[in-house]
Computed example of a mutant assay.
Amino acid sequence: MSRISLEQASNILAGAMAKGSELGLKPLSVAVLDAGGHLISFARADGASNMRAQIAIGKAAGALALGVSSRIVGTMAVERPTFVASLASMAPQGMVPAAGGVIVVNEAGLAIGAVGVTGDTSDNDELAALAGIEAAGLNAQG
């Protein structure tokens, strides 16, 4: 497989939202991007605030741009704040250095897209992203 289909993206959205409901999380927003950083699908739960689309896309796009989860981008921001801050202005879709952006890989371990989740704590956002990827029968980057 070399890309995430619209059906798989829809399953990711549903799985992430279901995980949010199961855990009683605050209203989530979920973005699914292809490997080129283009938006495939997005969902915003009732009550989610108005910048959540940009934040979810920024988490996923930042992960794709650097080839690591947005959790690791967050660690990089602490270790090398000037470097990460400079990248944000270059990233066309922004870059959010906080957990919740997870790269989706194919069987060979190559990136085929990414999921970004926002709305609750960053740790919970990441849990929802991972649940969405699993619900679609796909794999998260290890």
Rank of each mutant, 00 (worst) to 15 (best):
I40V: 10
V117Q: 08
A35H: 13
V105I: 15
D125P: 15
G113Q: 06
E107T: 10
L64D: 06
K19T: 12
G142T: 13
G119S: 10
A18W: 07
M76S: 14
A60G: 10
A140G: 11
G119Y: 08
G67P: 13
A56Y: 03
A65F: 11
D46Y: 04
T75Y: 02
I103F: 07
E134T: 14
A16G: 15
Q8R: 03
A56Q: 05
A61L: 04
M95S: 09
N11Y: 07
E22D: 14
S89V: 15
L130D: 06
G24Q: 06
L6K: 04
I4C: 12
G116C: 07
R44G: 02
I103P: 08
A140V: 12
V84P: 02
I133D: 05
D34W: 07
L138G: 09
G24Y: 08
R3G: 00
S29I: 02
G36I: 08
A16P: 07
L25T: 13
I112A: 08
A91D: 08
Q8E: 13
A53P: 00
G116F: 06
R44E: 03
M90L: 11
V78W: 00
E22L: 11
F83H: 06
V68G: 03
A65G: 12
R44K: 14
R71G: 05
K19I: 09
M51C: 01
N11H: 12
H38S: 13
F42Q: 01
G109Y: 10
P27S: 07
A65P: 03
E79L: 05
I112L: 08
G113T: 11
D125F: 06
A77E: 14
L23P: 01
V30T: 12
N50K: 14
S122W: 01
L25R: 04
G24W: 07
P81G: 04
V96S: 06
I12T: 02
S10N: 15
Q93G: 05
G137I: 09
D46Q: 10
L130I: 15
K26C: 01
I72F: 04
I12N: 00
H38N: 12
L127K: 13
S5I: 00
E107D: 15
I40E: 07
G113P: 09
S70W: 01
G101I: 01
A9P: 06
I12E: 01
V68C: 04
I103C: 09
D34G: 13
T82C: 07
A35Y: 12
N11V: 00
E79M: 03
G132L: 02
A98L: 13
F42E: 01
G15V: 03
G47H: 10
A128R: 01
S10L: 09
N139R: 15
T82M: 13
K19R: 15
V115T: 14
A61R: 09
A131V: 09
L87V: 03
L39M: 12
L33P: 11
S70I: 06
H38I: 09
V105W: 14
E7F: 03
S86R: 02
I103Q: 05
V78C: 00
G37C: 10
P27V: 11
L25V: 05
L138P: 08
T82I: 15
I55D: 03
M51H: 13
M1Y: 04
G74Q: 14
G109T: 03
G137D: 06
G24C: 10
A129P: 11
S70Q: 02
A61N: 13
I57K: 01
G62C: 05
M1P: 03
N50R: 15
N124P: 12
N139L: 12
L39N: 10
A35M: 11
A91K: 08
G36S: 13
L66G: 02
